[in-house]
């Protein structure tokens, strides 16, 4: 129930922000009857209504019976940490280039997943980055990001 209430509030915020952004869509002489703001306004209103309905339902409905046991999942700070590793890859690839950024990514994920650093881990990261570089740059002919330094 609490999760539904929180998600309802988040959806309401998204609807409001989306609506505000939609009002900033410029006008055009080529506009039809609906216009470029038509659908976004409808979507914002619908999302707000659905969000309210989810919130109301969470308040009035009976608590759900315990369902089958769910598989273990990471807590949100830990999950966001994994995402942050990917986000860091972008500036690192811009500066150090693809191969080195990938080595660091593979090392970071392995350490984040609880592995202790070892020569084997470095070898796997280096080998993995080389494998991906060969696959994309050489075999598929798609240039991966070049860094400022390498």
């Amino acid at each position: 129930m609490r999760k539904d209430l929180v998600s309802s509030a988040i959806l309401l915020c998204i609807a409001a922000l989306y609506y505000v952004a939609a009002t900033g869509i410029p006008s055009s002489t080529l506009e039809d009857e609906v216009g470029p703001r038509g659908l976004p306004a409808v979507l914002a209103a619908l999302l707000a209504m659905v969000a309210i309905a989810i919130g109301v339902r969470a308040l009035v409905s009976a608590p759900a019976a315990a369902g089958p046991a769910k598989e273990a999942e990471a807590h949100w700070p830990r999950a966001l940490g994994m995402l942050a590793i990917g986000a860091l890859y972008i500036p690192v690839a811009n500066i150090l280039g693809y191969w080195l950024a990938l080595v660091l990514l593979l090392l970071a994920v392995a350490v984040y997943e609880g592995m202790k650093p070892s020569w084997r881990m470095f070898a796997v990261a280096g080998g993995g980055a080389t494998f991906f570089w060969l696959l994309f740059d050489v075999v598929l002919g798609v240039r991966q990001p070049e860094g400022l330094l390498f």
Binding site: A87, A93, A110, E113, R143, Q144
Partner: peptide
């Protein structure tokens, strides 16, 4: 699992970049 997760992550980030060759897409 740590190696598998790393390789899957690398695959996602490298694969997405190939579409428009843009790190913006990765974002």
């Amino acid at each position: 699992r740590p190696y598998l997760a790393g390789f899957i992550y690398a695959l996602i980030l490298s694969g997405v970049y190939t579409v428009h060759m843009s790190l913006f897409d990765v974002g």
